[in-house]
Design a binder for these strands. Structure first.
Lengths: 133, 133
DNA sequence: GCCACTGTATCGCAGTATCGATACAGTGAA
DNA sequence: TTCACTGTATCGATACTGCGATACAGTGGC
């Protein structure tokens, strides 16, 4: 089994643990840190490492399996699926697309002109740039 | 009491009733359909009209009071506050701003280049335009 | 076959949120 | 003061969610 750097889990967070796990694995897959066909830690191994329940890990794995990022074989283990890297990227683009649609819908719904929405978008983009710099 | 067109409530919706009420009132206030200083239906009146509990209406009113859109006087009634129209508008702009920030953060977090994000934004904007046309 | 490892299914507990029933409290006109 | 109207506070039923304990089931090396 490969060496994985520990996940960063916050039990006190309002975000459920299984979603924290899923998101961090998704991120690593998209970033190429977790390569296709890599074997993941067993649900028990990851669970005991983080002092949580194996089912909680299983639930995270299930999420990612549904997204096509992981493939599981009972009795054998859980693996990053072959096409995962590309999939994870498109999955994340889709997430951004959804957020954009939601934003645009919210703006349209109360009659914010397209021009102002564009302006706002550019504003926030610069604001984000400032912060990161 | 003024004549208000009925709210459209869906008890089966996953969105809580009190939020449905709040959102629709917010919308009417921002749109100028509900003018400042207008008296709203009493919690009991609105509740019995929609066959729900007065407390559910009260909770919606409470939300809007916190946002400064309504002002309540026990024993007297609930009124659209004087500066509500402007407030509601800024409230909604803020909502869009928050969504934009969330979107930009999501894009940045997995390294989507600004250029592509802009492209995506324009894409979705046109897509929305198509749909509305 | 045996055994130690995989993932999975079932059950129950605890925390939380929505909403209703009901009782409480303030206001103002008669 | 009285009464009919306002909003408010309290309590409980119900549903849902996250997650743990525990038992079940498949796989492969010995």
């Amino acid at each position: 089994m490969n060496r994985h750097s520990r996940l960063h889990l916050e039990p006190a967070s309002p975000i459920p643990i299984y979603l924290q796990i899923a998101e961090q694995l998704r991120h690593r897959i998209a970033a190429g840190t977790l390569l296709p066909d890599t074997e993941l830690p067993s649900v028990r191994a990851l669970a005991s490492e983080h002092l949580i329940n194996p089912n909680t890990v299983a639930r995270a794995y299930l999420e990612l399996e549904r997204e096509g990022l992981l493939s599981k074989r009972r009795g054998t283990g859980t693996y990053v699926s072959t096409s995962a890297t590309k999939l994870a990227a498109t999955y994340r683009v889709q997430a951004v697309r959804d957020l954009l649609d939601k934003t645009i819908a919210a703006a349209a719904e109360f009659g914010l002109p397209r021009k102002q929405l564009r302006q706002l978008f550019e504003d926030r983009l610069s604001a984000a740039k400032e912060k990161s710099a």
